[in-house]
């Protein structure tokens, strides 16, 4: 069994998702469902914290492609933080840093949302 879990926090002005374990073709739909529900409730400032994510495949990367256009059209963003080097390698291999802001610390992502004036209550 793949083990994967998601915890959701609010840290204004952002919604934070802490993802843990293994994100692959089996578990990616869980993340897709979670992001979908946050966005449907108007949360467009999203930070995904990868600190406890041990593995990602292209199915995991694909989840972020599903939502990034819509979120940016709403002047929000999906920022990715605290990746283990082996996980970052997968993003880097395919050039994802061209499209996504990938940061070392969650604090930087929050600061960037504040600097951009994204202070909405929904995050």
């Amino acid at each position: 069994m793949s083990s994967f879990s998601i915890e959701h926090r609010l840290r204004k002005p952002a919604q934070i998702l802490d993802i843990k374990g293994f994100l692959d073709a089996h578990t990616a739909p869980q993340l897709e469902t979670k992001l979908e529900s946050i966005i449907r409730e108007g949360g467009y400032n999203i930070v995904v914290n990868f600190r406890e994510l041990d593995y990602i495949s292209s199915a995991g990367l694909g989840v972020f492609m599903v939502f990034i256009e819509e979120v940016r059209n709403k002047l929000g963003d999906i920022k990715l933080v605290s990746m283990q080097p082996k996980v970052f390698t997968v993003f880097d291999l395919l050039g994802f840093p061209m499209l996504f802001e990938i940061l070392e610390h969650e604090d930087e992502a929050i600061a960037n949302f504040r600097d951009a004036g994204n202070e909405s209550e929904n995050g």
Binding site: S57, L94, G95, M98
Partner: peptide, 22 residues
């Protein structure tokens, strides 16, 4: 082509790219 992939917010097809790269 990843530049076009990102510009057009394309989906899927990345598994093959990964295999070929590693």
């Amino acid at each position: 082509a990843m530049k076009e992939y990102f510009e057009k917010f394309m989906r899927g097809g990345l598994g093959i790219s990964i295999i070929k790269k590693v």
